[in-house]
Amino acid sequence: MRKKLFFITVILQVLFLLAMVTSSYLLERFGETIKLQTEAYDSQDVFYGDYVELKYLVEEIRPENWFSSDEVKPNQRIYVLLTPNEDGIYQVKAASDMKLEAEGDEVVIQARYQYQDFNEIHHIDLDIGRYNLETGEREEVEASQERLIVSVALSPWGQKKVVDVETVEVEEES
């Protein structure tokens, strides 16, 4: 009995690790991919070792898009309703601590609440801010001083993953 349990446990562990790997590939292939834009950064600040630190525009939510019931605690789960603009880049339509319904092109992603700043803007964390760059990508991002467009794959079970980072020429905001 114990021997059986031992082997079953070992097999389950291996299967779990393999499931992590395959679910990641499945997500990339079959998940819905949306494009998000990051804030402009000086490339000197963005790198931490092999990682690039991504700060998304959708992580800042204006009061008019904020539909939360009570005062929200740090790290509380937040649902963000995103809708694509004419360039196909997703932007915040609404954010709340309660579940939101998506229609048409819209998507709902989960994030964690951070804080509210002096301008009453709510800051949230999508938890996909750290991206490990391949060597080629790194050179490309390093050369750029502009904003980045990040492709994020979303799974129906709420998992999300950065699949691609590309640089984009963005006109200065007026």
Binding site: L5, F16, M20, V21, Q110, D127, I128, K161
Partner: peptide, 28 residues
């Protein structure tokens, strides 16, 4: 793997799995 495949580690689900695995090994 979580790091490599950009999993969002938003909860301690991984710790729960690890704890259960250790317990099953203990039982055997």
């Amino acid at each position: 793997f979580g790091d490599m495949y950009h999993f969002s580690m938003n909860s301690v689900f991984s710790f729960t799995i690890w704890t259960i695995a250790a317990f099953l090994i203990y039982l055997s």
